[in-house]
Write a protein that binds this DNA or RNA. Sequence first.
DNA 1: TATGAATGAGCTTTCATTCAT
DNA 2: AATGAATGAAAGCTCATTCAT
Lengths: 187, 187, 187, 187
Amino acid sequence: MLLSASLELFAEKGFHSTTMDDIARGAGVSKGLAYNYFTSKTEILSKILEDRFSQIQLALKDKEGCSEPLDRLEEIIVRRLTHLKENPLFYRLYYALFLNRPTEKILQKLIAKTAAVSGELTKEMDHLFSQLGANNSEMEAVCFFSELQGVAIEFAISPKTFPLDDIQKTLIEKYRRLYGNNKTRDK
Amino acid sequence: MLLSASLELFAEKGFHSTTMDDIARGAGVSKGLAYNYFTSKTEILSKILEDRFSQIQLALKDKEGCSEPLDRLEEIIVRRLTHLKENPLFYRLYYALFLNRPTEKILQKLIAKTAAVSGELTKEMDHLFSQLGANNSEMEAVCFFSELQGVAIEFAISPKTFPLDDIQKTLIEKYRRLYGNNKTRDK
Amino acid sequence: MLLSASLELFAEKGFHSTTMDDIARGAGVSKGLAYNYFTSKTEILSKILEDRFSQIQLALKDKEGCSEPLDRLEEIIVRRLTHLKENPLFYRLYYALFLNRPTEKILQKLIAKTAAVSGELTKEMDHLFSQLGANNSEMEAVCFFSELQGVAIEFAISPKTFPLDDIQKTLIEKYRRLYGNNKTRDK
Amino acid sequence: MLLSASLELFAEKGFHSTTMDDIARGAGVSKGLAYNYFTSKTEILSKILEDRFSQIQLALKDKEGCSEPLDRLEEIIVRRLTHLKENPLFYRLYYALFLNRPTEKILQKLIAKTAAVSGELTKEMDHLFSQLGANNSEMEAVCFFSELQGVAIEFAISPKTFPLDDIQKTLIEKYRRLYGNNKTRDK
DNA sequence: TATGAATGAGCTTTCATTCAT
DNA sequence: AATGAATGAAAGCTCATTCAT
């Protein structure tokens, strides 16, 4: 309860503009009780990040099914955007943290961790794009990753108005058009 | 001087984590003098935003040259990413502000303004994509915009390591492949 | 149990640095239960003081035996230092309280009481020293009292390393040498 | 100014019972300004200790003059009690700290330092007492040291009523009587 | 009798802002 | 135009005390 109230406030107002009074009020408890559960405001933030972090890893990892590369690409897009759709607040907070790197050691570690995961994912995409016959699969992977990130951020900023489902379709279609013919071409 | 020092600090540490002492020290002036130039820390931020804002409008507006749609698309990408490359700090600050909406009225207005400009741009892109024969030109425009945003943010976060030039090429090539044949098809 | 745990903690960390959590944990009971026995943290402290206070009075009072003044002096030294050796924690707490006078009324009263007892004791010593032929028996008494106090504090601070037994011997010998010959001289 | 106000308050009420508001009010400045001078309440305390510490070392060190041992003993007593008379508040604070060892690292170090100095002094006294022909010069030194400490504490607790000058005389006379005849005896 | 979750007053500390110089 | 000492409101956090169970 406290964590979800905090997430909402952190995402909306930012970590620093959110006071412990805000959090306590938001969670319907006293400030003192909040400090029974967590030792500091920073710890609340890091717990939020940790909690979702494992989820994200599970949700986003390419399951390396035996399916076609293009299907896997689609699957990756869908999985990522679905997770995004279910956690808009978290992603908003997460990207905000990324943008102005916190000074706290713990948070820096967590952020570094997620960056490492993104790096891995990009490598996997690299492989996938090379399978799809991309000229420069590495750049293609980075580009793809940034693209998804961009969509994620736009949605995170205005989850109510951003047409995520349509964008998802558009994205998938785009990549199908880009790489759908390669194989036939190769033949 | 004061504005550029502030921009650097705001971008790096975030608005709230930057103190007026930091700013004064960074600009090599006294705190008192800073308050002769600006009435508040918030005003410094809003001046930074305003200053760049006109630039951005000039730099990014589609000049509606008579050239081919595909060339115009390329031009838009290049112009935007060039501007980004020249102002990484500003973009980092800008996106951070977008992510945790400030409570100050002035800042909210400025943000709303830039959002409006983005909206216009998206409309223009809509038109462009329809010229290019996109099925759903509106979504295509939003998607394109998000894509650029994503690249921008990735670069803003790590301007030294992100391969912006390569990504630019990749992006352009991608769109050329996506829409390059449409016309011939139409013929 | 609660009182002895409290004494240990108060003596070691000081009254203010000891929390009710510390006390409850130290005594192996819940915080709530501690408040069933005592109405406040201050009350715990005052009960500790009161409890030992009667002991002290009994233990230290000069029994005015019919023995020789010098023997009585020795007896007083022994009695006091023995009591000290058996209650190092209490003395440490007691002297600490004396040094920074607490603001609570109850504690002030208790401290005033013990001061009164010390005053009485000093008077008795005055009498004793005049029997022993001291020039300025009153100052001698105060001096003696301070001396014992000093030894007590040194021992209270580091009960494990301070050589109390040897010091006791030294003290006794010292006073025997100081006043041992007086009588014979007087003869 | 701030340091002396703090010393007064710390000595009177104890470190923990003194708030930064008390200190600021006592020094006639705002709380904020106090934090311009010192980074924390603990730092104020440690500065007080450090400041006086060098004084104490200078004031108390046995100058090892060529004079007679007994004269040197007297000199040591006089020097110490004079310094005490001039800094009653400091000594009160100092002894209080000694009694309930603070948890802060810096303070512990300072206290350890002073303890080391006391140790040295005791060694010097050991030497002096052996010169004076004491049976057990080490214990005699410890005893002497405790004695002075006891007088110091009594005075520190009630500087207005404790007859320090008379006690000083009494002490000196006592030691003269104890060791004054030794030499002649030896002859 | 016994618990520990819950409270809130009060503490230390920070920092945007002011102002005497 | 320029300084930085000074302010005070507000933040994070602690802990004696209460209370539902």
